[in-house]
Design a protein around this nucleic acid. Sequence first.
DNA 1: CTGAAAGCGCTTACAG
DNA 2: CTGAAAGCGCTTACAG
Lengths: 339, 339
Amino acid sequence: MNDRKVDLKFIAEKAGVSVSTVSRALSNNSMISLKTRTKIKALSAQYDFRINEAARAWKLQRTGIIGIGRLNDSDADMHNSEPFYLEMIGKVADALGANNYNLLISPKSFESVAGFLTSRVRQQVDGFIFVGQGMRHPELNQIYNAGIPIIVWGADLEDRQYNIVGTDNKLGGYLATQHLLDRGKRRIAFFGLPDNSESHLRFEGYQDALCRFPVDGAPLESVIVPVSFKQDKAEQVIADFLSESIDIDGVVCASDVIAMITLKNLQKMPHPKRVPQDVAVVGFDDVLLASMTSPALTTISQNTDVGATFLVSRLLQLLEKGSIEDEVIEPKLVIRQSS
Amino acid sequence: MNDRKVDLKFIAEKAGVSVSTVSRALSNNSMISLKTRTKIKALSAQYDFRINEAARAWKLQRTGIIGIGRLNDSDADMHNSEPFYLEMIGKVADALGANNYNLLISPKSFESVAGFLTSRVRQQVDGFIFVGQGMRHPELNQIYNAGIPIIVWGADLEDRQYNIVGTDNKLGGYLATQHLLDRGKRRIAFFGLPDNSESHLRFEGYQDALCRFPVDGAPLESVIVPVSFKQDKAEQVIADFLSESIDIDGVVCASDVIAMITLKNLQKMPHPKRVPQDVAVVGFDDVLLASMTSPALTTISQNTDVGATFLVSRLLQLLEKGSIEDEVIEPKLVIRQSS
DNA sequence: CTGAAAGCGCTTACAG
DNA sequence: CTGAAAGCGCTTACAG
C-alpha cells in the first residue's frame, strides 16, 4: 500500500521535475513545454492528485468563495426562510458556479457592522453580497468604507457609497398600481412598511400612480397599511385591517408573501371577497410559488435570474478592477388571475 | 499612519511576548496566565486584530465550513430553486451558525461521483450534507467509501453505508392517505414518481393505507400518476391527467409544489372541482407557503427545523468521533383547508 | 507559565 | 523551458 500523501512534491518526484514545474503545468502555464505539461497532467490524473485548496487560498490570499447575507432589521427582518431571499441565494449560487466560485451563507443576518466585520465569514470570503438594504443603508456605507469588497441588492439611496444591483422599486410600485387602475379599481391600498427602503420606494411608485390618475373631482386616496415582511406580524396586521375596513377594491403588496396572506384572508372573511372581482391583488417579487396560488398571483417580477447574474459579474469585476458601475433592472408586471 | 499588517507577530511585539503565547492567549488556553491573557486580548481588541482564517484553516487542516448539495437526478431533478431544498439550506445554515460553522452551497447538483470528488467544494469543506437520495443511493455509498464525511437527508435504503437523518416517508404517505380515507374519500390517486426513493416510499405508505382499509366487496384501487418534482414537467402531467380522468376524489402528492399545481389545475378546469368537497388534496413537506395557499394546504410536515438540527449535530459528531447513529424523524399531518 | 522551531502545501519572482 | 528559494500566518509538540 502506498499511503503517502499525493501532493505537488509527490507528482514532481514521479515526473522527475521540480515542484514549481508541476504547479505551473497544472495551471496550464505556457512557460512549460507542452510535452511536460501533458506528462504531468497524466500523472496527476493517475495518482488522483487534488490540489490542497486551503494551502492555495492562503498563498494566494484568495479563497474562491463569495459570501451572501443581510444586515438584520429588527422589524422588517427577513430571515433565512424568506422565499425571495432563498431564491436569490439559489440563483446567485448558480451564477457563481459558472465562474468557479462557491457561495458561503452567513448563518444569520448580522446585527451590526462590527458583527459583520468580526465575523468568521468575512475572513472566509473574497467578497460579499448583501441582499436588501432595509433600514441599514448607513451601516452598508460603513462596511464599504472598511474596505470590504461588497455589492448590495438594493436601490440608489442618498449618499450611497457602495455599489448596487437592483430592481427599480419605484417603477415596480407604479406598474402594479397603474395596472389596478387600468382594471377599473379606484380604492387601492398599499400593504407594506413605510420605513423600509425597498417597500418605501414601492410605496412611492404607488403614490405616483394614484397622483397621476386623471380624477374628476376628488383625488384618489392613498392608504398605507404597515405590513411587515415577516409572516407572523403580517398575518396579524392584514387580518385586523380587513376585518375593520373592507372599503377597498385593490391591494398593492410589498411582497408576494404579503400578497398570499392577503389572498388567504380575503377568502376566509365572514363574507369572503372574490379575487379579483371584489378585490384585486398584486404582489411583488414573483417567487416561484406565485404562479401556483389560486387564483395565481399577479405580481411585479424582480427577475432574480438577471439580478443574480449581475450581482455576480459585477462583484467579480470589482475584485479584479476595483471599480464598477451600478445596475438597475427594470421590473416587469406579470399578469395572472388575481387582478 | 501605521499600515503594518496586524498579525500575531505584531500583537506579540506590542505585548512583549512570543507569537506562541499570543496564539494560546487568544484561544483562551489556560496554560497562559490570566494576566497575560487579559493583556493580550486587550491589545488584540485595540489593534483590531482578526485572525487569518486561511492560514488557520491550512494549519489545522480544517476550514470550519460544511457543504450542502445534491446529486443530480436527470428527471426528478430538484435544482437550486426548489422551495423545500432552499428552506432546508436556510435551516441548516442557522443550525451550523449556532456551532460557529458556515455553510457552503455547491453551485449546482453534481452529475457524478467523480464530479463531486474532484469539485472545488469538496476541498473547501470539512464535511458535506446531501439533501435527498433520489435515484443516487449507490453513488452516495461510493462517496462515503471514498472517505468523505457525509450525512444524507434520506431514508434507510438497502445496503446503505452512509449515515442518514430523514423523515419516515412511508409513514408520511400512510398518514396522508389515511386522512383522506377518514374524510370519506375512496378514489384516491398518488401524484409522484415511482422510481425516486423519497416518493417511492411515500407511495408505499399510500398503498399500505389503501390495503388496510376495511373494504366491503371490491378493494380500493391504487392509482399512481408519475408526476416529477420538477415544476414544468409536473404541470404537464397533472393537466393531462386531470383533463382525461377526473374520477378521483382525493390526491396524495409527493410534494407541496405538486399539490399546489394540483390545486391550481383543479380550479381552472372547464368544470372546476371544488377543493376539498369534490377533490381533497394533501401535500408533502410543509414548506412555508403551504399555509398561504387558498385553500390552505393540508400536508405532511417534514419538520425541517428538527431535521436541520439533527443533520448538523450528527455531522459534527461524525467529524469528532468518527461514527454516529442514524436519525428518523416522525412526519406530522398538518390539517388545513384542502382536505 | 513561556518561547523557539517545525511544519501545514502551495505560487511566483528571480536566476539560469 | 526549468529549478531553488522565499514566503503566505498560524498551531502545537517539545524544551525549559
